[in-house]
């Protein structure tokens, strides 16, 4: 019984049975296999097929994304993941996630700060790369070479 509940917790946590292999999207059969063996045995083939069909209906179907960028940043004290997704919005109903005003404000502040930070870092790198490529090609846009700040 203990093993049975452990398996249930694993499925809830990871969406699949405990395994060393990389996580795959769970199939309806994965959830069906978690039904108690006694109950499973009592199901007829038709009932089983019907339950499987309803589970398949309830499972989210990920839409193809135009951009699907995921990476992790490990800052030793904590590990963060960053996900950037762009895709067609097929949602018909409004997303209804109740959040307090303070949480909403905090989310906005953090999102703007992160976006500004990434923008600044990326822009600086792009400008520097373009400047170096321009210089490597021997193009001098301004008379007199820029010898750096303080020179």
């Amino acid at each position: 019984m203990k093993t049975y509940w452990y398996k249930i917790r694993q499925v809830v946590r990871t969406g699949g049975p405990p395994s060393e292999t990389p996580r795959l999207p769970p199939a309806p059969a994965t959830y069906l296999a978690q039904i108690h063996p006694e109950v499973q045995a009592s199901l007829s083939l038709r009932q089983r097929a019907e339950v499987e069909r309803v589970i398949a209906l309830a499972m989210p179907k990920p839409a193809p994304k135009l951009v699907d960028l995921r990476f992790t940043i490990d800052l030793l004290v904590s590990r963060y993941f960053i996900v950037l997704m762009v895709g067609k919005d097929r949602r018909r109903t409004r997303r209804d996630v109740p959040v307090s005003r303070l949480t909403k404000f905090g989310n906005w502040v953090m999102a703007v700060a992160l976006l500004l930070g990434f923008n600044l870092a990326l822009s600086t790198s792009v400008v520097m790369l373009v400047y170096l490529i321009k210089s490597a090609l021997g193009i001098n846009l301004l008379p007199g070479h820029f010898r750096g700040f303080g020179n």
């Binding site: 940043i73 490990d74 870092a121 600086t124």
Partner: peptide
Amino acid sequence: GSVVPASAVISVAIALLVAFD
């Protein structure tokens, strides 16, 4: 997990190299 922070440090070092010639 170290690639983004470490690349940022490298880019800052290169930026200093270029900016201060």
